[in-house]
Amino acid sequence: MNDVTIIDYAPEYSRYFKSLNVEWLEQYFTVEPIDLPILDQPFEKIIAPGEDVIFALWQGRVVGTCA
C-alpha cells in the first residue's frame, strides 16, 4: 500500500489548491466572492503573510490540500 505524502506549497500545485477547495465549498457551502482572491493567489494571500499551504499526494497525485 502506498502512503500519502505531505508536501509544502509549490507553484505547480496552486491550481489544485483552488480546484479542491472549490469542489469542497460547492458541495458543503458556497463559494463566495471573498474566497476567490485567496483561492487564486494562495502564495500572496496565505504564504507571504506567514501561513502555510500543504498538499497531500497519493501515488503522485494531489488528493488533498489545506491552509
Rank of each mutant, 00 (worst) to 15 (best):
I34D: 11
E23W: 08
V4Q: 11
Q59C: 07
Q27W: 06
I46T: 05
R15Y: 11
Y13A: 06
K45R: 12
V62C: 02
Y28P: 00
P33R: 14
E51Y: 15
E44Q: 11
A10S: 15
E44M: 03
G64S: 05
R15E: 14
Y13G: 06
P33Q: 15
I7L: 15
Y9I: 12
Q41L: 10
W58H: 14
V63E: 00
R61L: 13
D8A: 14
Y28L: 10
F29Y: 14
V63I: 13
V31D: 02
I46V: 14
E12G: 02
K18W: 06
C66D: 05
D3Y: 05
W24E: 06
Q27E: 15
V31M: 01
E23Q: 13
I6G: 09
F17A: 01
A67Q: 11
T65N: 07
Y9Q: 15
C66M: 02
Q27R: 11
D52Y: 12
L36H: 09
A48R: 00
E12H: 09
V63K: 06
W24R: 12
I34G: 04
V63H: 03
I47G: 00
T5E: 15
M1Y: 00
F55C: 03
N2F: 03
Y16H: 12
Y16E: 07
E32W: 04
F43H: 11
P49G: 10
L39H: 05
P37D: 04
F55L: 06
D8V: 07
I6L: 15
I38M: 14
P49L: 13
R61K: 12
G60S: 02
K18P: 03
E51T: 11
P11W: 12
P49H: 09
N21C: 10
V22N: 10
I38Y: 07
Y28C: 06
L20H: 05
L20T: 07
K18N: 09
E44W: 01
L36G: 04
V4C: 13
S19R: 09
G50M: 01
I38K: 09
I38H: 04
A67D: 13
W24Q: 11
P33C: 11
E51V: 08
Y9V: 12
V4E: 12
V62G: 01
E32V: 12
V62L: 03
I54D: 08
I6A: 11
F43L: 06
V31Q: 05
I7G: 11
A48M: 01
Q59M: 08
N21F: 05
Y13V: 07
F17G: 00
G64H: 02
P49Q: 12
L20P: 04
D40C: 02
F43A: 04
E44R: 09
I38F: 06
N2E: 11
P37S: 04
C66F: 01
F17H: 05
R15V: 13
Q59A: 10
G64D: 02
Y28G: 02
Q59L: 11
E51R: 13
I7M: 14
K18M: 08
R61C: 08
E26A: 10
E44V: 05
E44T: 09
W58D: 02
L39P: 05
A67H: 08
G50R: 02
V62A: 01
E44G: 04
K45F: 02
D8H: 13
P42A: 08
Y28K: 08
Y28D: 06
V22G: 09
Y16N: 08
W24M: 13
P11E: 15
P11Y: 12
